[in-house]
């Protein structure tokens, strides 16, 4: 066994990290799109920092994926939209501010929970460093959700109803508990999908406890484990638009690249 094989991850782990990385890539994109459209200049400054943080984190996750044999060209510039494993919550740009905040909040927190569950030497220190970034993202979003729950509770609740089932689907089936979650069994993560689902739900129930906003129930049937594709963490073939992929891959900026 060579040195590389000794540090090889289980195949399911490569898919898991790919999904986190692609979600963060899209988070960077969505933060960027909203960078000039927040209600306060301060939201935009924070949003710009969040976008930069996400892109920096993606760079490191891609570095690890390349070490696991994932093709660099494919990762960065040769993928079709349906080959991105981002959370479905980010497939479309939100149409207004409260919807964007719910979209980004649920997704960023979920990506963090999935990342923090990883228990592998290749991530030593790196996850801690990412957590230093994430504190500010999650605190900003929760602060914003609190104010929006006061000023626009209907919009927040509608966005939660739309995105909560989608983010549960991305996390994975409720049947993946501590005893059966394949990545926990493989020793790659130390927190099961079922546990992460519960943690996410509990967080928002507490956050909105004294507001008029109701959090959708933690539906154990979403996603259907028989329909769930572990590679893209979805039950359907939805994907981000081709025009967004062109931006992610820098297609229109290629003519300016200095080789």
């Amino acid at each position: 066994m060579n040195a590389e094989a000794e540090t090889g991850w289980p195949e399911a782990a490569v898919d898991y990290v790919q999904a986190i990385a692609d979600t963060k890539l899209l988070l960077g994109q969505r933060y960027g799109e909203w960078m000039l459209k927040g209600p306060h200049l301060e939201d935009n400054i924070s949003g710009a920092s969040n976008a930069q943080d996400e892109i920096g984190q993606v760079r490191q996750l891609f570095r690890l994926l390349k070490q696991q044999g994932v093709d660099e060209e494919w990762l960065e510039s040769e993928r079709a939209p349906e080959e991105y494993a981002n959370a479905p919550t980010l497939d479309e740009e939100a149409e207004n501010w409260p919807t964007f905040v719910v979209q980004a909040a649920l997704t960023d927190r979920t990506a963090w929970l999935l990342l923090d569950a990883i228990d592998h030497d290749d991530f030593t220190g790196m996850v801690q460093k990412m957590g230093e970034d994430e504190y500010f993202h999650l605190e900003h979003q929760d602060g914003r959700l609190e104010t929006l729950a006061e000023s626009q509770p209907d919009a927040v609740e509608a966005a939660l109803e739309r995105y909560f089932p989608q983010i549960l689907t991305f996390i994975g089936p409720a049947t993946y508990d501590q005893a059966s979650d394949p990545l926990v069994n493989a020793g790659f993560t130390d927190r099961s999908v079922a546990d992460i689902r519960g943690a996410l739900h509990e967080h928002y129930v507490e956050l909105f406890a004294s507001t008029d906003v109701s959090v959708p129930p933690l539906d154990g049937d979403v996603p259907d484990p028989d329909q769930w594709d572990a590679k893209r963490r979805r039950t359907d073939d939805g994907h981000v638009e081709a025009s967004v992929v062109d931006q992610l891959q820098g297609v229109s900026n290629k003519e300016y690249v200095i080789e």
Partner: peptide, 17 residues
């Protein structure tokens, strides 16, 4: 200065700005 809708947001904005 920062403009914020809550103390919690003001802390984050101050740090980020």
């Amino acid at each position: 200065t920062v403009q914020a809708d809550s103390d919690r947001l003001a802390r984050i904005y101050a740090y980020r700005t």
